[in-house]
Write a protein that binds this DNA or RNA. Structure first.
Length: 1101
RNA sequence: GGGCAUGUGGCGGAAUUGGCUUACGCGUAGCACUCAAAAUGCUAUGGCCUCACGGCCGUGUGGGUUCGAGUCCCACCAUGCCCACCA
């Protein structure tokens, strides 16, 4: 009898040795082969770690230990994602303050994490609520803001009435509910007699139904990166980053690329009776797009005036305005268009007009005396102050065209115009920079009232029989606001049922997601939902293909946030449009395309009382759909367009427990930007204005969000104050809004009175950069290093292997990628080239694997079911090694596992047996039989090394463990004299799974050796070399030849390796069993698979 | 409604990627040790037929390809996860 396997003693002992020796602390600066092995850090919200966390951490740790033994300098950090709603709600629940509770949770979590025995670099841990950490979270916000990637916008957002905060789209879960007829009083008959479920959006944390609330919020412009985020994922065929395919698919779907076209539908009466085109500096009525535009407008029946402005080479705006007012008639139906300097003239004209015009178009306009290509205009001849109020009142519908290729007008001028005068900006690339092409279709479009739609099926355009606008579409508001100024002769383009429309829109806006879904579901179709809508009476659009006038509707089945917020409805080819058309008796016209031959159109097959009929698409009749798409787009002057489903990242949270958003609002600076363009850059006079890089007094973010000023970087962090009453207030404002000493501050720009932003940022911002933070924890604590400029970041990033839950597919993982790309673009983050030129060298996580879900006896673990397994109990009873190994043995790590109490005994027995065998070594003198067996055992040993190595690399821990069991069984069975080498290999193979036991066994062996020769001191097994197998030893000398007759196994016999087909045949026919099965039947052929089997095929088969 | 998985003994799961289905473990039964139990060890363990030798049938269902299919193709069924009025 040897020593007893006292796991408690062993585990405690080695954990303290490892900690003391710094076994898992890589040498950051000197590391030769840095390997960043990252595991998603936990949010310490609940009662402590549950076994699911432990499952995931262990899986990552096994891999890290394996890589460490393979000679890599492995960095395996751990920290806590302690900010955020999870922790805050937990504190609320138990009546504690999150700031204090955090410290308590922290202790408990770290203790638990240590007891598991993972090889974490304990010196480098971080907590997101540490001011030294969130200082940099805020710093990121400032970088995003400065570079125009953060903006403020008022829009309906997801609001959780229970958490009293907004939620990102990604945080709203769709949940099915069986409708309860009693509570659905407003949707009566539709719901009865149906088993259908309805979907409602609920808060991912508390399950409360989410409502829409209109709030002004901060957003990060993730949409700008949609294309790159998608591209780096690669395609279904392959390429892209090495990630679990299911996560890549989830991200692809979430980004949701679709390719189609944008097509304009003119509104009937959308061409104004008269136009005034004002040219710019050195321009004439005859140059640029003006002659073409005049022709186009006149062709449509309009009268076009292009005054030849005086002193065009030495302009004096006042004189030009006088000239225009004298020579051109204006009325309520005039459209005034100003190009470049002509835009200034137009604005000044508007100041002087007695009554409003129909609409104003500013093409490549500006408000400031600054240009990219030439010097300023003479200050004396210009008045750069604008009467914004008068201009707003007189401009009618204001349209601002921003040319993205413009080399003259600075890029921010369009926003400035919008800030001053309102209006809608359209960005486009002009035919010639600064909109100087002979034909500029975008300009023509802006002169005519039209509706732009996005469609993926332009090939069905001939079948578009009506249009639908989202309730939030700007045209709807504009029509509702329009007075009678458009009441011209035929009174077209005037909304006749304003009240009805207004009512519908108000109702739609008020509707919560729940209500919309509940009352929108149409069970009669089985698939879709009953759509509601209202016609814009008096408004007709012209189908650009058929030239037919079609009605225009408003309906909330069209989403404002996607595409252009307007659609062309093709009821014959789109199920949603079909339902709507059926309900409101709208015409259905089918186009002929190979997808839906006339007779089998799936939608028209169903009974419809109205007349569905074929439309003649002229030369496009029957054209292949893919060809027709682009041909028809060209035919109607549309443009190909790629659309993404992805929305910008809503980052504000009206909660307490998070990093305050590091911005202040300053009325004074807002006024500067809004009211008077010239003063903003007053300090720039005399500068070389040709440079577009010149210093501006305001950053991009500040110009785009007037009044919002970033807290200077040296003033970070903006500390979260201790607020006793941190309960969310539910008024759309964070509890910080009640703390005067917090929000009252001075503007960093002008020194005046200012108010701090009182919202905090989304938790996902904290976790989006923590992998960078880990590399600066030591230095950061000394307050020295910017984690982003830290040389270690360059050396160790990107992360080599990242393991985590698939539930973060579209949250954390997408945000982290976005931020990594953005920060690299901004120039504050640099990755090493250690990943080589692998796809996505700019990506933060080179390899990502999603682990599976750990369930308990077939069902999901949850507090409500009361089946959550507490790991502490099992560790006490069986030891951490046993629990670790058991969890890894359950099933493939990427698939998940089913935790069953009973089966843990198998692992427990296995480790006991390993202990018995190796802790109490037996060196028996061998007889001949044992020597022979030893040869076999050596082969098995090397085969096991191969198998375990390959399996761990592929995260197939269950089969690696099974291989170890087979090896142990065999050793016990043969009880051979084992070499010192073999006695070391087994513990090494065991080390990633059962680190404590392996260390103990190994050190026992070393001690034995040491007595003989080896004088080395303590070297942890976890820093030793991973075993290498000898391929020659693995080769088998014999194999089992399988003999089949007609594909059925009839006999097996041992055969030497390298048996030829002829030899195998002879062996097969010699077998008495085989003869019986052939029955003398004629042999058609034999199939021989070398080293495996021979199959005899007879005639009767 | 769409997308992605998965479906193998009483259970968790293996299967060299088209070649002996059920490795490894749990459970169960029997035996050994024990006064007895636990622990441990040994043996057996897919179903059906047979005293037996042995045979037949078996990887959700139905078809197909192949000398040979758990694996590939088609259709269907079931379960799970993700998404969902995205034009």
């Amino acid at each position: 009898m040897g020593k007893k396997y006292d796991f408690q003693k062993i585990e405690k002992k080695w954990q303290s040795v490892w900690r003391r020796e710094g076994t898992y602390e890589p040498s950051f600066g000197k590391a030769q082969k840095p390997f960043y092995n990252l595991m998603m850090f936990p949010y310490p919200s609940a009662e402590g770690l549950h076994v699911g966390n432990m499952y995931a951490f262990t899986g990552s740790d096994v891999y890290g230990r394996f890589k460490r033994m393979q000679g890599y300098d492995v960095f395996e950090p751990m920290g806590l994602d302690g900010f955020g709603i999870h922790s805050e709600n937990y504190a609320l629940k138990i009546g504690a303050h999150p700031m204090k509770q955090a410290k308590i949770s922290e202790k408990r979590f770290y203790k638990q994490l240590e007891v598991i025995g993972n090889g974490f670099s304990w010196n480098e841990r971080l907590e997101t609520y540490d001011p030294d950490y969130y200082k940099w979270t805020q710093w990121i916000f400032v970088q995003m803001f400065k570079n125009g990637l953060a903006y403020r916008k008022k829009q309906p957002v997801n609001w959780c009435p229970s958490c009293k905060t907004v939620l990102a789209d990604e945080q709203v879960l769709q949940k099915s509910q069986i409708p309860n007829p009693k509570s659905q009083t407003n949707s009566k008959s539709q719901i009865q007699n149906h088993k259908h479920e309805i979907r409602i959006g609920v808060c991912e944390r508390c399950d409360t139904p989410v409502v829409k609330k209109e709030l002004e919020q901060w957003f990060f412009r993730i949409t700008k990166y949609a294309g790159r985020l998608l591209k780096n994922l690669g395609t279904q065929q392959g390429g892209g980053i090495d990630w679990s395919e299911r996560v890549k698919i989830a991200q692809r779907n979430w980004i949701g690329k679709s390719e189609g076209a944008e097509i304009d539908f003119e509104i009937a009466g959308g061409v104004a009776p008269s136009y005034v085109l004002l040219h710019g500096y050195t321009g004439t009525p005859k140059n640029d797009f003006r002659p073409w535009l005049k022709k186009e407008l006149e062709r449509r029946g309009a009268k076009v005036h292009i005054p030849s402005l005086p002193h065009t080479k030495n302009p004096r705006v006042a004189e030009q305005v006088e000239f225009v007012l004298k020579n051109v008639p204006f009325n309520k139906n005039t459209v005034i268009l100003g190009h470049s300097l002509g835009a200034i003239v137009a604005l000044k004209v508007l100041e002087k007009l007695k009554q409003p015009v129909r609409s104003t178009v500013l093409v490549a306009g500006f408000t400031e005396n600054n240009f990219l290509d030439h010097d300023r205009f003479d200050e004396q001849t210009f008045d750069w102050k604008f009467d914004a109020k008068r201009i707003r009142a007189n401009a009618g519908d204001l349209r601002i065209l921003r040319d993205t290729t413009d080399a003259i007008v600075p890029p921010n001028q369009a926003w400035k115009l919008q800030n001053l005068f309102g209006g809608v900006i359209t960005e486009f690339a002009a035919q010639e920079p600064h909109v100087c092409g002979k034909e500029e279709p975008e300009v023509l479009r802006s002169c005519i009232d039209s509706i732009r739609v996005f469609t993926t099926r332009p090939d069905t355009l001939f079948g578009a029989t009506y249009m639908v606008l989202a309730p939030e579409h700007p045209l709807v508001a504009s029509l509702l606001a329009a007075d009678s100024r458009r009441l011209d002769a035929d009174s077209r383009g005037i909304l006749k049922n304003k009240d009805e429309v207004k009512k519908y829109i108000e109702k739609a806006k008020k509707k919560s997601e729940e209500e919309r879904t509940a009352e929108g579901k149409d069970f009669s179709t089985g698939t879709g939902q009953a759509k509601t809508g209202v016609e814009l009476k008096g408004i007709r659009a012209i189908n650009p293909a058929t030239k037919e006038e079609i009605p225009v509707w408003v309906a909330d089945y069209v989403l404002a946030g996607y595409g252009t917020g307007a659609i062309m409805a093709v009821p014959a080819h789109d199920e949603r449009d079909w339902e709507f058309a059926k309900k409101y008796k709208l015409p259905v016209k089918m186009t002929v395309c190979p997808h839906y031959p006339a007779q089998t159109c799936p939608i028209l097959d169903t009974a419809y009382e109205g007349e569905g009929h074929l439309v003649d698409s002229g030369k496009f009749n029957g054209m292949a759909s893919e060809t027709a798409k682009w041909e028809i787009t060209k035919f109607v002057g549309g443009a190909r367009k790629t659309q993404y489903r992805l929305r910008d990242w809503l980052i504000s949270r009206q909660r307490y427990w998070g990093p305050p958003i590091p911005l202040v609002f300053c009325e004074h600076c807002a006024a500067q930007i809004n009211a008077d363009g010239t003063r903003i850059n007053a300090d720039n006079i005399g500068e070389n204005l040709r440079s577009n890089r010149r210093k501006s007094a305001f950053t991009k973010g500040e110009l785009e969000n007037p009044g919002w000023i970033a807290v200077p970087e040296d003033k970070l962090p903006v500390r979260l104050p201790f607020v006793k009453d941190f309960q969310p207030k539910g008024k759309g404002e964070s509890p910080l809004g009640t703390v005067k000493s917090f929000y009252e501050t001075k503007c960093p720009k002008c020194g005046g009175k200012a108010r701090r932003e009182t919202d905090v940022s989304d938790t996902f911002l904290d976790s989006a950069w923590y992998y960078i933070g880990y590399l600066a924890t030591s230095d950061k604590r000394q307050g020295k290093v910017n984690p982003f400029e830290n040389s270690l970041a360059k050396k160790w990033l990107p992360v080599d292997t990242y393991i985590g839950g698939a539930e973060h597919s579209v949250l954390h993982l997408l945000y982290s990628r976005f931020l990594a790309l953005a920060l690299q673009d901004i120039g504050v983050l640099h990755f090493s080239a250690k990943g080589g030129s692998a796809p996505g060298g700019e990506e933060p996580f080179t390899k990502f694997r999603a682990h599976g879900l750990l369930i308990k006896e077939g069902s999901k673990m949850s507090k409500s079911k009361g089946n959550v397994v507490n790991p502490d109990e099992y560790i006490r009873k069986f030891g951490a090694d046993t629990l670790r190994m058991y969890l890894m043995f359950l099933a493939p790590f990427e698939q998940g596992g089913d935790f069953r109490d009973s089966s843990i005994l198998g692992i427990s027995r296995f480790l006991e047996r390993a202990w018995k065998l190796f802790a109490n070594q037996r060196h028996g003198a061998g007889d001949m039989e044992q020597v022979r067996k030893k040869g076999e055992l050596d082969r098995l040993l090397h085969k096991t090394v191969k198998k375990v190595t390959e399996d761990i690399e592929n995260l197939r821990y269950n089969t690696a463990i099974s291989a170890l069991m087979i090896l142990l069984n065999k050793i016990e069975e043969t009880n051979p004299p084992m070499s010192h080498v073999a006695c070391r290999i087994f513990p090494k193979l065991l080390a990633p799974f059962a680190p404590h036991l392996a260390e103990e066994l190994y050190q026992t062996q070393i001690d034995a050796d040491r007595k003989a020769a080896d004088k080395r001191g303590y070297v942890s097994i976890h820093l030793e070399q991973w075993p290498i197998y000898d391929p020659k030893l693995i080769e088998e000398k014999t194999f089992t030849l399988i003999i089949q007759v007609n594909g059925k196994v009839r006999d097996t016999m041992p055969a030497p390796a390298g048996t030829s087909e002829q030899e195998a045949k002879e062996m097969a026919f010699d077998s008495g069993k085989i003869k019986g099965f052939i029955h003398g039947g004629k042999i058609v052929k034999t199939v021989y698979i070398p080293g495996r089997l021979i199959n005899i095929v007879t005639e009767s088969c």
